[in-house]
Write a protein that binds this DNA or RNA. Structure first.
Length: 517
RNA sequence: GUCCCCUUCGUCUAGAGGUUAGGACUCGGGAUUUUCAUUCCCGCAACAGGGGUUCGAUUCCCCUAGGGGACGCCA
């Protein structure tokens, strides 16, 4: 059987967003599932809008997601070049062939002229189709106009017929070519237009499956006609649903789509993000939702993709309704995230599943970014930091959230009496004696220990001794001590918590809390 | 306006001519955790509406409504 070859073909006219990234993911997963190849091609024939900066941004995003392409920019391959701007000679070659065979023709209509006609039609409420003014120019006329230096485009001579797109996702869809008309395949700047270039490239690159957004479905009959005109075989089509935002509008660069890099900067792992994107429009046969990328690579099938649009339900509209999420800073985006989204749940699951060493390595930049950990302790070898991070990981939906927990372990303790005014454990009569007894026990028991260290076992022992000494047990004992020694009513298991805080900080907190009374 | 597509819990979705319409996230309740989170259990919650076809329709067909997309010398 023929090797499956899929491709992702972004245009470098902006950043990569969820819509495009999910298309890339599907192409990648399908190629992997079929043991085929995944090709990256850059569609930069829009000379006005394509930028080098955008090109790098798109590649960076794909790399972060881990969607490694087998052929394409930077890695090369036997079907190159992989940037359309470097394939101009190919488009020219086949355009000439089409003209020679009278399947395409030069058109000298100006943009202004066309624009005027279009507006007229629209004013009458009619759809615009090219009127075919240049369709039947004689060779002499063409010659003459060219000699006069008139700019021209090349139009495809659309046959009157019905084209059927046989689509893996959408089924059979019929189109009447009368509403398409003769369309431009080469622009007046000599660059191929999308519908033409994509056919030449896909054919020459031996693409077997075109997986893309359903927005392209209505372009497909044009492409099929070109395949036919050139005597080539069409690839298999798979038009997957679009992704819409919480407002039910398609995600696009102009409309609320957040750059992929923003999710990286927020502290989502690529593993979690891919998992979430895979679930947008696709479901695994057994219904499993938490999946590693390897599982996705073996399970993915474009035939299981849904036709109806999927909502990227990650931002809280009640907070972000009037905001342009595409422009928002990371800080702002964080505030607009819906804290209980499925993405966050998946992200938390993936963070927990990450091997320790990898987790530490991945979170370190975010730890650094929090700005509260001293430079000399900012290392994956630092035992205390490792302990803190590993203990805290179950709380994290994103790696970026670590900054909410770190100050407690690294910044000076400054309790505010107001916070405790109504706390039953603080108000308890024995609060101070509990505190004093605990401090004494800790001091006494840790005499022989290394400076600063406080083992969980030692803390456990101290707690029970204090309980016996003062005749307190149960919740009042544990919660009282928790408040007295940490200043908080929630957090890690107390012995672990205090051990990570270290002896000095615990003693300081005990003193400060007791002094508040 | 023309053409195309879509519509199952709030969200992601499974499903199939006969099911108590299933799962996941969220939410509510309970248990465990001497705290919070976790974990576990239980629960709330859906086939857009109207016509057909059929013994039987949420599933097939038509219409309506709503939504989306395409109608470029953008991709």
């Amino acid at each position: 059987m023929k090797e499956v070859r899929t491709r992702f073909a972004p245009s470098p006219t902006g950043y990569l967003h969820v819509g495009g990234a999910r298309t890339a993911l599907f192409n990648y997963l399908y190629a992997r599932a079929q043991k085929g190849k995944f090709i990256l091609r850059i569609e930069d024939t829009d000379q006005v809008r394509s930028t080098e900066q955008s090109y790098h941004q798109v590649l960076d995003s794909l790399k972060w997601l881990g969607l490694e392409w087998d052929e394409g920019p930077e890695v090369g391959g036997p079907h190159g070049p992989y940037r359309q701007s470097e394939r101009l000679h190919l488009y020219k070659e086949y355009a000439e062939k089409l003209i020679h065979e009278k399947k395409a023709y030069p058109c000298f209509c100006t943009a202004d002229e066309l624009d005027r006609k279009k507006k007229q039609r629209e004013a009458m409420g009619l759809p615009y189709v090219y009127d075919g003014k240049c369709r039947n120019l004689t060779d002499a006329e063409v010659h003459e106009k060219k000699a006069a230096g008139m700019e021209h485009t090349i139009r495809f001579r659309t046959p009157a017929k019905e084209v059927i797109v046989d689509d893996i996702v959408q089924g059979s869809v019929r189109f009447d070519t009368a509403i398409i008309g003769d369309f431009i395949i080469v622009k007046s700047d000599g660059f191929a237009s999308y519908n033409y270039a994509v056919v030449v490239d896909d054919h020459l690159m031996d693409i077997t499956h075109v997986i893309r957004g359903v927005g392209h479905l209505s372009n497909t009959p044009r492409q099929i006609m070109i395949y036919e005109a050139l005597g080539w075989q069409s690839p298999h089509w798979a038009h997957v649903s679009e992704i819409v935002g919480s407002d039910h509008k398609k995600l696009s660069k102009r409309h609320g789509a957040t750059p992929i890099t923003a999710f990286r900067d927020l502290g989502y792992t690529a593993r979690a993000f891919n998992n979430y994107m895979a679930l947008l429009g696709w479901s695994s046969p057994d219904g499993r939702e938490y999946m590693t990328i390897d599982e996705q690579k073996s399970l993915f099938d474009v035939a299981r993709c849904s036709k109806s649009p999927a909502m990227f339900d990650v931002f809280d509209l009640t907070k972000a309704a009037e905001v342009d999420l595409a422009q928002a800073s990371i800080q702002d985006l964080e505030a607009y995230l819906f804290p209980k989204s499925k993405l966050n749940w998946l992200s938390n699951q993936h963070i927990r599943a990450t091997p320790d060493a990898q987790f530490i390595q991945e979170i370190l930049p975010f730890v650094k970014n929090s700005g509260v950990v001293p430079e000399e302790e900012l290392s994956e070898k630092n035992e205390r930091l490792r302990g803190i991070l590993l203990s805290l990981r179950v709380y994290l939906d994103t790696l970026g959230q670590i900054k909410n927990y770190l100050p407690d372990f690294y910044l000076p303790f400054t309790p505010d009496p107001k916070d405790y005014a109504t706390s039953e454990y603080f108000l308890a009569e024995n609060f101070v004696s509990l505190s004093l007894a605990f401090e004494r026990q800790i001091e006494q028991m840790s005499k022989g220990e290394k400076t600063g260290t406080l083992s969980p076992d030692l803390v456990k022992e101290a707690i029970s001794l204090v309980g016996k000494e003062l005749g307190i047990k149960g919740k009042p004992l544990f919660m009282g001590l928790r408040l007295a020694s940490t200043g908080r009513l929630e957090g890690l298991e107390l012995p672990v918590y205090l051990s990570l805080l270290g002896k000095e900080r615990v003693i300081t907190r005990l003193k400060k809390m007791a002094a508040l009374k």
